[in-house]
Design a protein around this nucleic acid. Sequence first.
DNA 1: AATTTATCGATATATAATTATCGATTATAC
DNA 2: GTATAATCGATAATTATATATCGATAAATT
Lengths: 215, 215
Amino acid sequence: MTNSTTPHTVPRASLKRLPLYLHLLENLMADGVEYVSCTQLAKEFDFDAILVRKDIELTGEVGTARIGFKVATLIGSIKSFLGWDKEQDAFLVGVGNLGKAILGYKDFKKYGLNIVAAFDNDSRKVGTKVFGYEIFSTSKFGDLAKRMHIYVGIITVPPEHAQEAVDLMVDAGIKAIWNFSPAPLRIPEGVILENVRLTQSLAVLTNKLKRVFKS
Amino acid sequence: MTNSTTPHTVPRASLKRLPLYLHLLENLMADGVEYVSCTQLAKEFDFDAILVRKDIELTGEVGTARIGFKVATLIGSIKSFLGWDKEQDAFLVGVGNLGKAILGYKDFKKYGLNIVAAFDNDSRKVGTKVFGYEIFSTSKFGDLAKRMHIYVGIITVPPEHAQEAVDLMVDAGIKAIWNFSPAPLRIPEGVILENVRLTQSLAVLTNKLKRVFKS
DNA sequence: AATTTATCGATATATAATTATCGATTATAC
DNA sequence: GTATAATCGATAATTATATATCGATAAATT
């Protein structure tokens, strides 16, 4: 279950495929399926079976020939490997359209992320509630983060305020930042920054589309 | 400006870096900067300068030694390479929290994506307006898409309805699908599918965080 | 019980992506 | 004017990632 031979560098690509497997495995589990092979998993995603096996290998899980992996324990291994087995509390800054959408998405809890409060600069928003979350003034961020031992911050502010939000979070002892703003951000050594950039994904789409129309 | 030596396979990673450069270049342009070198660009993102040069090479743009690239023409080359120089009309299906957030994000137009209408199954939503977009019944999708020559579809429905949305779009002649649902989707040959999976990004974040807390 | 088949883990190969090297070029400093 | 330094494009080397091969193993088939 635990992995004693974890390599120093986990391929980012593998890390991104594991949630896909997990999602499918949970469906299989719900359907009462007990065992699954890499071949089966691979078929679902049009991946190479060996690729899936190597990804699973990262989690430390071992399978049995001709049978595959036990669905229930594999789910546990992947969750544990991703850090989704124990809940991480998080604060969100920026209650605009995107911030609201994230607050409204209840499933993050299944992925170990528990948003506990939201913050905004706009005094008209402060004090209101969004999907059950009270909106606090950003001036309260540091105090509350320290008091509640929050280490994860989510940034959904407009790009021109994104660096401010980062600084606020860093000062408050935030260790990992999930950033949805398109601005390039500066963070000190030791703080983790993970960006969600919609325009990057759009770029891949439109570039491919361009070539479709060309041919 | 145009690129006669485009390789068959554009590295996806390059495609995702180009919008980063573009964003920065537009800021430089606004500041009146005329020329920029790969070294400068690389410094902004903590990339290797050679990596940036190779990415730019893909767009077909050529620079001059000791000077670099002309900001204005480089912006044009990147936009053209990404297919962002001419507008693509798009339909969005699924006006929930995320769908609304995307409808409210006006900047996509800058990236060549022009959302023209939104669709939802929920009869209570049909006929209402969200950020100026009228919400249509999904039953109207095919007709309107064909009539308006729409080739791009955006999926922001709950995962259990995502495949339906894909089928609807494919039947309507949609060529490229930008999918925000976490469900694994089946598409026919020739249709482009680009997924935005928030849980993948979250996986990278939490896995890194886990290792921070371990050490 | 022997044979076949699917799948495993381990190791090796191939492909893709990134980084390094090098000669050429052009502004800046002397 | 000549030397110096920065940066280019092109090519080579390195590293990372994905795929292929192979013996071992365990169920299914005969």
